[in-house]
């Protein structure tokens, strides 16, 4: 565990918990793509199938459980919470996300580290995470709504990506034979898509600020 990896995990955790708390406190999920959140829940469930087979550390197990539980809690709130669900932008969140799931699974069948159920699902979760932000990007472009997607969520999610890339560079330089072809390539794609998301978020945020000029 190096400092970049720890910072990456902490900012990732903060981004998810902040979104959950924000939704719960304001009782609104306006501007949040449920499809993106469902994809993240699928990502964690399929990546952490090794919870039951491999023990790495208490930290590792604890973080996996928290990630699965918090992402499921966000999805639960958006689907079933009697107040929160009413603010969901259903008609704007129309991205065909089954296409992403299918494409990621197909790629995982072709490119994986070992042909086993666990390893194919692990690769699938890595590819799906890389593109999971797309429904949120589309929703943001359509609604221009940045009320609920707080600056902090966007900031911490971006910091998580940046720290993980620094972590891989650090491990590549310090550990003999360290390579992460699948995670590394997907990580770069994910960061590029995130940069696009950030760009639109910033434009949207700027435009909203302009609209708030006193009449």
């Amino acid at each position: 565990m190096n400092v970049f990896r720890l910072a990456g995990d902490m900012t990732h955790l903060l981004s998810i918990l902040l979104l959950l708390l924000k939704i719960y406190a304001t009782k609104s999920c306006s501007g949040v793509s449920r499809k993106t959140q469902e994809l993240y829940a699928i990502v964690f469930i399929f990546r952490y199938l090794d919870l039951f087979t491999d023990f790495i550390s208490v930290y590792n197990t604890f973080m996996k459980v928290v990630f699965i539980a918090s992402s499921l809690a966000i999805v639960w709130c958006m689907r079933f919470h009697p107040v929160v669900r009413r603010s969901y932008d259903r008609e704007l969140d129309t991205f065909r996300y089954f296409f992403l799931v299918g494409a990621s699974f197909a790629l995982a069948l072709i490119w994986h580290e070992k042909f086993s159920v666990q390893e194919v699902f692990w690769a699938f979760s890595i590819y799906l995470e890389a593109v999971a932000i797309l429904p949120q990007l589309v929703l943001l472009q359509r609604s221009g709504n940045v009320d609920n997607l707080t600056g902090q969520y966007v900031f911490f999610l971006g910091a998580y990506r940046a720290f993980y890339i620094l972590n891989w560079i650090y491990r590549y330089l310090t550990e003999p034979r360290f390579t992460r072809w699948i995670a590394g390539t997907s990580g770069v794609v994910q960061t590029a898509l995130y940069a696009d998301f950030f760009y639109y978020y910033f434009i949207s945020w700027k435009n909203n600020s302009k609209l708030k000029l006193p009449a």
């Binding site: 491999d54 790495i56 990630f67 580290e113």
Partner: peptide, 10 residues
């Protein structure tokens, strides 16, 4: 398990 790489990152 021997021979299998464990995914130590989250």
């Amino acid at each position: 398990p021997l021979g299998q790489r464990i995914h130590d990152e989250l």
